[in-house]
Nucleic acid binder design. Structure first.
Length: 470
RNA sequence: GGUCCCAUCGUCUAGCGGUCUAGGACGUGGCCCUCUCAAGGCUAAAACACGGGUUCGAUUCCCGUUGGGACCGCCA
């Protein structure tokens, strides 16, 4: 590859950045980074009725969160209408495009009729030969598609795909309101921005021959194409809201790490032997279209969850602690804007990070460390805070009182001694204590918990538990 | 309806003619570890859609069938 690689992600701002879009952006980003090329962000907002600035911000927010940084842009097609106009004028002058006076309503009606009769709903070309304008009608502009021969899409993932030009109908390149349409702007911009590789979803494959005809009409060489397989929902239909969250930022809110989402997404369609977990660096190093599959992939939330846990486990506790604070506030574990001893929080996080699949779970599980008072789970209380455990708890409380430092080894010594004295198994003591200090029956090792909790809170909670029994 | 794409365990995938009694991962079951829950280790069940070719030999190549998907917009 002697020429510099230039790729782009070109979303339309008609919705949030979703899973499918993020995957397309990721593959483009990976390809650019792999070859040290440029990644361009272009907003395709020619549909004025559906595009909004809010969605542009949302897309940028999503890309930023994922760490998919772009080198140029964001460019907005709305700012480039003059450029498109000059290209269209050229086409019209050369007879490669013509004015179409059919109304949108008529077109729609004819399409419906054709479909109902089982015929192809393609445009019939009735305005092709018009020489005079139709009075009182502002026309759209159509591209005159060649009707004989074939167009070949040479795809990096699928190989050569052949289309008969007779199947290609004359597409509208300028709406009657004067705004250009996607098939025109995508070609003009990819030429203007010197895009070398068009990497996009499979759903664009059928548009590609039409776009290639546009390239040829302009006299430009076509870029390389790579059409990625689609991501499907569990019922094998196109991924949508019905299948749960599709917005990338929704995953942020649910407590997923961007690294985990990216890692999951890249494995949908791409593989590198048996490896499942990749660092960003490995991804850019290993990425190649040779390892991209052709078949659509079903989105599997379970595996994403597992990957997220892998990433949470691998994180430095201090970094995780910093990241968890907003989630603690949202879960009402701490007050909004409240402060915490971050070094201590890091130690607390360390005991729980391999037990959480999401940051939301982690934040919730941190509760008993942070809040002053805990409530006992009724079932746990009934099972473990009873007469049987009472002497053990009392004995432990007395011993703990004399323990100066709450260290893992120190605590273990005290527990072992109490257990030995009463001739019971460790569980007979550990479980009541666990319920006493955490309110429930599940937690990290009891010594770890007490070490983080500290002497004061521990004794207070054991006292409360004893009181609850008696 | 037309055109195009696709097809290995439930899911993501490895496999690029013999190494396949088809490998890994998620999930599921069992066992181990163990103060609970996790994590971890071991283990089990689980797939080449079907039919024709080509070949000494097909999961792998070709054709067809079936099944799924996408597109056919003055959406992108």
């Amino acid at each position: 590859m002697s020429d510099t690689v230039r790729v782009r992600f070109a979303p339309s701002p008609t919705g949030h950045l979703h899973i499918g879009g993020a995957r397309t952006a990721l593959f483009n980003w990976l390809y650019a980074r792999h070859f040290g090329g440029a990644f361009v962000l272009r907003i395709e907002d020619t549909d004025r009725t559906r595009s909004t600035d809010e969605y542009i911000d949302a897309i940028i927010e999503g890309m930023t969160w994922l760490g998919l940084d772009w080198d140029e842009g964001p460019f907005r097609q709305m700012d480039r209408f003059d450029l498109y106009r000059s290209y269209v004028e050229r086409l019209v002058q050369e007879g490669r495009a013509y004015y179409c006076y059919c109304s949108a309503e008529d077109l729609e009606a004819r399409r419906q009729k054709a479909m109902a009769e089982g015929k192809s709903p393609a445009y019939d070309g009735r305005c092709r030969r018009l020489t005079e304008p139709v009075a009182g009608v502002t026309p759209a502009v159509r591209f005159r598609m060649p009707q004989i021969g074939q167009t070949v899409v040479d795809d990096l993932i699928r190989g050569k795909v052949v289309f008969d030009n007779a199947q290609l109908d004359d597409l509208i390149i300028v709406r009657s309101d004067g705004t250009p349409t996607y098939n025109l702007t995508v070609v003009v911009d990819d030429v203007d921005m010197k895009i070398t590789h068009v990497i996009r979803g499979d759903d664009h494959l059928n548009n590609t021959p039409k776009q290639i005809q546009l390239y040829e009409a302009f006299g430009y060489s076509v870029p390389k194409f790579a059409h990625l397989p689609m991501i499907l929902g569990s019922d094998k239909t196109r991924l949508s809201k019905r299948h749960g969250a599709t917005s990338v930022m929704a995953y942020h809110e649910m407590g997923y790490l961007p690294e985990a989402l990216l890692n999951y997404l890249v494995r949908l369609g791409w593989s590198y032997g048996d490896q499942e977990v990749f660092s960003r660096d490995e991804l850019t190093r290993y990425f190649s279209f040779e390892n991209v599959g052709k078949a659509a992939a079903v989105f599997n939330p379970e595996k994403l969850l597992w990957l997220n846990q892998q990433y949470i486990m691998a994180m430095a506790p201090e970094a995780l602690a910093k990241m968890i604070v907003p989630f603690l506030a949202r879960e009402k574990v701490i007050a909004e804007g409240g402060s915490l001893d971050m070094a201590w929080l890091g130690r607390a996080v360390k005991t729980l990070q391999e037990r959480a699949k999401t940051l939301v779970e982690l934040a919730r599980s941190l509760r008993y460390y942070i809040v002053e008072d805990i409530d006992f789970d009724p079932k746990a209380k009934e099972k473990f805070l009873n007469e049987k455990g009472l002497p053990l708890l009392k004995e432990l409380h007395a011993e703990l009182l004399g323990l100066a430092e709450f260290t893992h080894d120190g605590l273990e010594g005290v527990f072992k001694a109490v257990v030995a004295k009463h001739g019971v198994k460790l569980g007979a003591l550990a479980q009541p204590v666990r319920v006493a200090v955490t309110g429930g029956t599940e937690s990290p090792g009891i010594y770890e918990v007490l070490e983080v909790l500290g002497k004061e809170k521990t004794l207070k909670r054991i006292e409360k538990a004893i009181a609850a029994i008696g």
